[in-house]
Design a protein around this nucleic acid. Structure first.
Length: 278
DNA sequence: CTCAGTGTTCAGTG
DNA sequence: TCACTGAACACTGA
């Protein structure tokens, strides 16, 4: 469920199911990768009997403020998500297809039952997600290393331009750098550059103030819009590159018929429209 | 069988 | 030390 809007969807789901409830029972998969070698026994001790004061998010990191530390910190990796018995899963373009009716779903990593009988589960088919414990999540890594969150703390235009001017990396890689903009992933980065009309290979320091401004407002608008529809990608505007960028098809075109190119930048597939991005 | 896939980390390089 | 690059990680499905 990976980028900012999908993680925010997970946060809202967690808030609605877990917020204000006491965790009565915890079950953990035997998976030392996702749990970073913390044993199931330690997890039960850390969580059971505590109240979930709030579900919070910065970038792609999601955590619970509990009534006492340590607090659980969730990262969804490429294929992680929260599920409850009654919510329909998002279908991502990467990762396994899921049967919406199956309960418990496949690939469950942690299962939490609350004092009102509600249940919340995290799944992760590809095991690139992580579930960690932190005494002070906001002041410790990984959250302490993150840059601004485009939904919660967008820098003002002048500051944003300065941040770009200081970086020699290409703009695509910079957007993916979580210590720059927390929560931006591959499709949002491509969408921002497409809508701002900027060639993804450009060095960040080469952008004009006008280009930086377009990039900033595009980023804010795309993230806000995606969050407003709760990351339901069928509700993203038809004009978005999102709907046409997948699968590396040679004949891919935008809604207005412009050819879409696929190249690898910073190790990631990048979809862009040469006739519209300079 | 091969490879791509909404992500992060770390060793290596300049 | 900093900034950047590419491979590795792990697994499903096309």
């Amino acid at each position: 469920m990976p980028e900012l809007p999908e993680v925010e969807r997970g946060r809202r789901l967690a808030e609605s199911v877990a917020g204000g409830r006491r965790i009565e029972h915890v079950w953990c998969a035997d998976d030392e990768i996702v749990f970073d070698s913390i044993a199931p026994r330690a997890w039960r001790r850390a969580l059971e009997g505590k109240r979930v004061e709030a579900a919070r998010r910065w970038g792609k990191q999601l955590w619970f403020d509990l009534s006492a530390p340590p607090h659980p910190l969730f990262h969804f990796g490429m294929t992680g998500a929260f599920r409850t018995p009654t919510t329909t899963p998002l279908q991502l373009k990467s990762g396994p297809r899921e049967d919406p009716a199956a309960w418990p779903p496949r690939f469950v990593k942690i299962r939490m039952r609350f004092n009102d009988g509600g249940e919340l589960v995290m799944v992760d088919g590809r095991r690139l997600g992580r579930i960690l414990l932190r005494d002070d999540p906001e002041r410790q890594p990984p959250i302490a290393r993150l840059g601004f969150d485009p939904l919660l703390a967008m820098p003002p235009p002048k500051r944003f331009s300065e941040m770009l001017r200081a970086r020699s990396a290409n703009v695509k890689s910079l957007l993916l750098d979580q210590s720059f903009a927390a929560g931006v992933g591959n499709w949002i980065a491509d969408e921002v550059l497409y809508q701002a009309g900027i060639d993804p290979r450009r060095r960040a320091s080469s952008l004009t103030d006008a280009e930086a401004k377009r990039m900033r407002s595009g980023l804010a608008a795309i993230v806000k819009r995606a969050v407003d529809v709760n990351a339901d990608n069928s509700l993203y505007p038809r004009s978005w590159l999102f709907h046409r960028r997948w699968g590396r098809q040679d004949d891919a075109k935008t809604a207005s018929g412009q050819p879409i190119e696929h190249v690898t930048i910073g190790g990631r597939t990048t979809a862009w429209v040469p006739s519209a991005q300079r």
